[in-house]
Design a protein around this nucleic acid. Structure first.
Length: 258
DNA sequence: GCGACAG
DNA sequence: ATCTTGTCGC
């Protein structure tokens, strides 16, 4: 019972979603807009954020939407918000935003109202930016709706526009020797959609970094590497510790989940 | 039937 | 969004 009838939504809903993606895509800015993004040491960058929706159990409707803000370059927690939510839209590859985004936008708006001084200068998003079926992944979507610089960080390759996790791709991964090494992900259309990044020396499985909004791919990759103590960038990893306790030490000052 | 499948 | 299973497109 409680059998989840979450198949794919009807075609007309998907068409609506595609229309919305196409319309908002025009507002994406895929270059550096802030002075710190061009600085070799990111001087001027003081706060980096991360957002994610993580699941409590296998109950696919009940989840925790969280927003974490860390100091830069220390990567210490300045703010954490974690809210239990009930997801309604099903997960459909290419439409992740329609499942998770409303809660992430809410979290940013809450922060804007309560602690505007703690607003992050860039957000890491668990998922893709322009590396997407229609060039408008969840990181672009969140960036456009909040007007914040956003970086898409995916843990596996979204095989789109001719990109394949094939033998050649795996060979290229083998050539990434040190943390910070990366190679471009060139789509069939001839444009670079993102970069595969070895996020630190002891991680063999790369991250897939793409532009979300208001940052160049080069700055996005460099900043992602600079925020990785482990494979997953600290802003995203910290908040996943809120629900999963995977090696994130418990902090005394943690906001209660609402 | 077989492989792909961001989270 | 995983160690899984189901669904869809080919």
């Amino acid at each position: 019972m409680a059998r989840k009838a979450a198949g794919k939504p009807p075609e007309e809903i998907l068409l609506d979603w595609k229309r919305e993606q196409a319309s908002l895509k025009a507002r994406v800015v895929d270059r550096d807009t802030e002075a710190w993004q061009r600085d070799p040491a990111f001087s001027g960058l003081q706060r980096v954020g991360g957002v994610d929706v993580s699941f409590v159990k296998d109950d696919s409707g009940s989840a925790c939407a969280s927003l974490v803000v860390l100091s830069y370059p220390e990567l210490e927690v300045l703010y954490e918000d974690c809210r239990m939510v009930t997801l309604t839209a099903p997960y459909v590859s290419g439409f992740l935003a329609f499942r998770e985004l409303p809660f992430l936008v809410d979290a940013v708006q809450q922060l804007r109202q309560r602690e505007p001084r703690l607003m992050p200068q860039v957000l890491f998003v668990d998922g893709n930016g322009v590396l997407h079926h229609r060039g408008f992944g969840v990181a672009c979507h969140l960036g456009v709706l909040t007007d914040l610089p956003c970086i898409g960080v995916a843990k596996k390759l979204l095989q789109v526009d001719g990109l394949e996790n094939n033998a050649l791709h795996k060979e290229k991964i083998q050539l990434l020797k040190a943390g910070g090494d990366s190679f471009p992900l060139m789509g069939g259309s001839g444009t670079v959609l993102g970069r595969a990044l070895r996020s630190h020396d002891h991680s063999t499985k790369p991250l897939y970094v793409s532009v979300g909004h208001k940052i160049s791919l080069e700055a996005a990759v460099r900043l992602t590497h600079s925020c990785c103590k482990f494979r997953i960038p600290e802003p995203v990893r910290q908040e996943q510790g809120g629900t999963k306790a995977k090696g994130v030490p418990p902090r005394s000052l943690r906001r209660a989940c609402r």
